[in-house]
Design a protein around this nucleic acid. Structure first.
Lengths: 183, 183
DNA sequence: GTGTGTTTGTAGCAGTCACTACAAACATTG
DNA sequence: CAATGTTTGTAGTGACTGCTACAAACACAC
């Protein structure tokens, strides 16, 4: 038998743990107990808590992009086009806990808490840039619409977290409902 | 000379403290040190930490409404109309720290952390309802546009916190179209 | 003055946290 | 076997947390 634990296995466990309990309850001790191992194995692979959090946040970012990938299969005209297509995808189960994590990390980043302040903006920027490459039109148009799309989706999902699904659905109807027919 | 401390004075100090350091660094000890008083005076007025946090969050909510009040002086047609008028107001200094607090509390609420989970949704709901009363049109239209306005503004300000002012400005341009008015 | 409410000093509680020291058992490679 | 890397046990550090106990000084209303 090989060694029992690997970096990836523990990262998966950590991701499951934070999806379950949130970042604020991620500790060496709790994660070890959850995985049924010694806490010092985790420290062996992630020498500091920041190392662990950074790895978890990277995994969250990857999961978020993976969750949004189906939205970007077809060329996108503008941010409202994107929201219209994204909303059914964002209604899938598993999306809300993922964004709950994102908002928790984003809130801590906005509050200046390390290591979130240093890590989350990079995630958002990568996300916007990735969206920009999948929108049609001029470079300026793509950058504008990508930023608007990320902002709108984030706002809608935050409203869903804090105001409930009904309020978010109402907001989506207002945003994509009045269809302006423009080229 | 009267007693030295009142509920409101300490609440003001607590609000200033969280605007400075964030909710995650709000403790009895730090607040007392900042105010130059004993920590047990704070406990005397706010017997538990949750009492203190609840009072601070209520104050934050009031400040947010106060900051947004100038937006709602004129009748609002729809959420894009609101965003167009709100953006110059939201560029005022002091708005960003206030929303950083809101996002910190919202993130913790999304993560299920008490007492945020129990307190923040009420704030958001009150905010949406308040906005709905100031939008013109039918009841359904007002509710839709109010929810969309809150979602859009939150998304834009979150993008400003995490992606920088330039990205947020780009997003606003895409959302409100070419008729952006700047002050 | 008496009674009641406020402020502070001093001290401590029990819990959690990230992190460390050290030794021993274990697996893998060579 | 020898060398190296991995896992665990036991134990502990120092810092911080919300919260409490108790007594004393203080302000105020009556």
């Amino acid at each position: 038998m090989g060694y029992r634990h690997t970096n990836e296995e523990m990262l998966e466990g950590a991701l499951a743990a934070v999806l379950d309990e949130g970042l604020s309850r991620l500790t060496f001790g709790r994660l070890a107990k959850r995985l049924g191992i010694s806490d010092r194995v985790i420290v062996y692979y992630f020498p500091t808590k920041d190392d662990l959090v950074a790895a978890v946040l990277a995994a969250v970012g990857a999961q978020l992009q993976e969750a949004l990938a189906p939205v970007f299969v077809a060329p996108i005209d503008d941010h409202r086009d994107l929201v219209r297509r994204a909303w059914p995808v964002l209604a899938q189960p598993g999306v809300d806990p993922l964004f709950a994590l994102f908002f928790e990390a984003g809130g801590l980043a906005a509050a200046g808490v390390e290591p979130y302040r240093s890590l989350v903006p990079g995630l958002v920027q990568a996300w916007v840039e990735w969206a920009a490459t999948l929108i049609t039109g001029s470079s300026a148009h793509r950058q504008r619409e990508a930023a608007a799309a990320i902002a709108t989706i984030d706002g809608l999902l935050l409203l869903r977290q804090l105001g409930g699904p009904a309020a978010a659905d109402r907001a989506v109807r207002a945003i994509v409902g009045d269809t302006v027919r423009r080229a």
